[in-house]
Design a binder for these strands. Structure first.
Lengths: 218, 218
DNA sequence: CGTAAAATTATTCAGATGTATAACTACTGG
DNA sequence: CCAGTAGTTATACATCTGAATAATTTTACG
């Protein structure tokens, strides 16, 4: 009886593979149904590796959570950074990236919600959440401030923070609702709803973000 | 050796008691840690009763979820209904009720998120979610329409729905962020942020909802 | 080419979990 | 006051779970 043939992966590759398998299983079966054995099978390894790479199942799940959060903000942030120069367009792209694929996915929202539920009773989850939230809020503030300035709107630090909080709430809310209620209304509406709502929240003239002046929509 | 003394409760009381114990345990330990034994202990009964009243643990948890969702919307809806006559004030109260106690609580949000995570892979959870969402959206549309009309703003069915979607996103987002990030910024700001943001979303003159004309703020 | 170290598998184990069943007891109606 | 019923407890059980350990195989290196 021969053992299963296997391949050695680099530390980073194996860890990533395991974290991704964890996310797949949590999304498919919930935290409850995501057993070490199932995750290992998804990653095409045996359960022992979890201990080897993460020490415990909980530690692996925490790492997977941080991995997910990082991915989500990175995608949105990249979208904005890709449009250097025009501050309006940067904010617009950042907003839209949060409510379009790949960030707008039922699986991602589902995962996020599952993990958020754990923030309350697991201090280490709380720490990961806090970190991720702060980073997202800072990103948003940094994008909002120049836009307000360009449009000659009040842009004190306090005002920017307040706007960032409201925008963040709007983003998260629409992101969730949009992903969870796919089918109830067209998801194509979401980016427009978000951008238009953001204009209003920031007190910008209608169309400032929807039809950037300096660049042509394609 | 005497058995534990016990009291017979009516079917409704016992079921409610078990559902509330379920919510307490899920909030405290997550779906994973909320075992039948712990829930039974919280309700001060033995585990066998779960089978007797709900057939299975999963069925009990589903009932607890529906119970929670109903409670949340009922609280907000009641807040609005308590202010008959002034449509602006009704909308205002509805909005505020969603981001103030008792609805604004880390435990409620945590529970809600935990359950949402299950919507994706459990069709029966999806059904409960869909139902609750539709009800909330309808409530919101019914509140928004007269306000728009009174302020002579466009108020077609389509426009109302669009506004309701955005508002719902904003509410959920701020509700979550506010509950999860207690401490990062004052929760007292939330109702004001939400009301002000809603005015802007609906295109109402500043202060329409924050300082209702017919009634004096106290 | 061979050898040691590290990665991976296979197996084992103690404990927890959901549920089924049997025994008991509080309430109800006569 | 007494019996029957159903709510409730107590116990048993098969299964699963996370983790620990031992055995094996791949890879790196001299």
């Amino acid at each position: 009886m021969s053992r299963k043939a296997f391949q050695r992966l680099s530390l980073d590759d194996r860890r990533r593979s395991l974290m991704e398998a964890t996310l797949v299983c949590v999304a498919q079966f919930g935290l409850h149904g995501a057993t070490v054995r199932r995750i290992a099978e998804e990653a095409d390894v045996t359960a022992g590796l979890v201990r080897h790479y993460f020490g415990s199942k909980d530690e692996m799940i925490r790492n997977a959570y941080a991995y997910l959060v990082g991915q989500l903000t990175a995608r949105a942030s990249d979208s904005a950074r890709r449009t250097e120069g025009d501050t309006d367009l940067q904010l617009r792209q950042f907003l839209r990236a949060n409510v379009t694929m790949p960030n707008l996915s039922e699986q991602k929202v589902s995962l996020w919600a599952t993990f958020i539920g754990r923030v309350r009773y697991d201090p280490q989850f709380a720490e990961i959440h806090r970190e991720g939230y702060r980073e997202f809020l800072n990103l948003l503030e940094a994008l909002v401030e120049p836009v307000l300035m360009a449009h000659k709107r009040p842009h004190s630090a306090a005002i920017c923070k307040r706007h960032a909080i409201a925008l963040n709430g709007l983003i998260d809310g629409l992101w969730m609702e949009g992903s969870l209620n796919a089918g109830l209304y067209s998801q194509a509406l979401l980016p427009d709803i978000l951008v238009e709502a953001s204009e209003r929240l920031l007190g910008l003239p209608p169309g400032s973000l929807s039809k950037p002046q300096t660049t042509q929509e394609q």
